[in-house]
């Protein structure tokens, strides 16, 4: 390798920082969608780098389903305090109480789907014209076609057949009044890239990612955390298992894996050899072959 050549993580970092700065330049009121998961932690970390030594010029927006792991919330509050940024919380619980959305019924009930309405409401309320998200193209088939700058109509909807072509480093953020953009600065990162980078940078992560003992139930091959939010089916009995989470979503639909990884180095080694896709543990994606595409069109993250 010559002297004037970046390695792939350095190049991905440079690309993401460019995209984040482009958002600050082209939009009036951007916001970072923060879920507490590793991708939004990475995104926030890159945003810090993009504007250093100034503060991140955007607030963070967290859509709280009320079914989050307590570890996620603790982590979020600590990070926000460290960065000195503003945090906005959109509450699904509250939207249910107001009757804006209705809770799903049944054993596999999840508030995942309800997040979309609350997210769109918050974006409208805050008059945000760009929402930065930690979506990656390698996550899921429908995301493989997502743009860095993804245009949304006034209903927040994504039209995959009518996306703007995106060439070179030229990102077209023009829009009509009332429309907004979703921006995905880490589009080109894979799960392994994210973990390797987090390891090299020594970035702190929620404890859920590391192996711990917890009470779980196994449903349709997916290991779910036992919690008051997850009604048990007849015959289901929680058992103690040594698990960790590869993604962090709601307690009701985020699958755990059995693992020995208690350090980030071990996680990287595990990911490098693992044979199951990252979202393989997400019950929300298993609902149908095009579950993600359908949710995205409606305005999901």
């Amino acid at each position: 390798m010559t002297h004037y050549q970046l390695n792939h993580l350095q190049e991905l970092e440079a690309e993401s920082i460019f995209v984040i700065r482009e958002v600050a330049s082209q939009f009036e009121n951007p916001v970072i969608l923060f879920s507490g998961g590793k991708d939004s932690i990475l995104l926030t970390h890159l945003a810090r780098k993009a504007f250093w030594p100034a503060r991140i010029p955007f607030p963070l927006l967290h859509i709280d389903t009320g079914h989050n792991f307590p570890e996620t919330i603790e982590f979020r509050d600590r990070l926000v305090a460290q960065l000195g940024v503003k945090l906005i919380v959109g509450s699904v619980e509250e939207a249910i109480n107001r009757g804006v959305v209705q809770e799903e019924k049944g054993y596999n009930a999840s508030r995942n789907y309800l997040q979309t309405a609350v997210l769109l409401e918050e974006l409208e309320k805050g008059k945000f014209d760009a929402a930065l998200g930690g979506g990656r193209r390698d996550e899921e088939k429908a995301r493989a076609k997502e743009r860095f700058f993804s245009h949304r109509d006034e209903f927040g909807q994504w039209d995959p057949k009518n996306q703007r072509p995106e060439l070179w480093n030229l990102f077209n953020g023009r829009k009509h009044y009332g429309e907004h953009f979703r921006v995905f600065p880490i589009s080109n990162w894979t799960e392994l890239d994210v973990w390797t980078y987090l390891m090299l940078e020594g970035i702190e992560l929620p404890s859920l990612y590391f192996v711990h003992e917890r009470s779980c139930i196994v449903r349709d091959g997916v290991i779910l955390a036992a919690s008051p939010y997850l009604p048990l089916k007849p015959g289901e009995r929680p058992k103690r298992m040594r698990v960790r989470f590869r993604t962090i979503g709601d307690m009701t639909c985020t699958g755990a894996i059995e693992s020995d990884a208690d350090t980030i180095e071990k996680i990287v080694a595990e990911i490098a050899t693992t044979r199951i896709a990252e979202r393989g543990g997400r019950a929300d994606d298993h609902r149908s072959e095009t579950a993600m595409e359908d949710r995205k069109k409606e305005g999901y993250f």
Binding site: M1, Q5, L6, N7, H8, L9, Q10, E11, L12, E13, L192, T196, Y197, L200, E201, V268, A272
Partner: peptide
């Protein structure tokens, strides 16, 4: 990014 030791194959390659 900082270059930290030890460099392993996972992040040495170009894009």
């Amino acid at each position: 990014m900082k270059q930290k030791e030890p460099p392993i194959q996972l992040y040495q390659g170009e894009l």
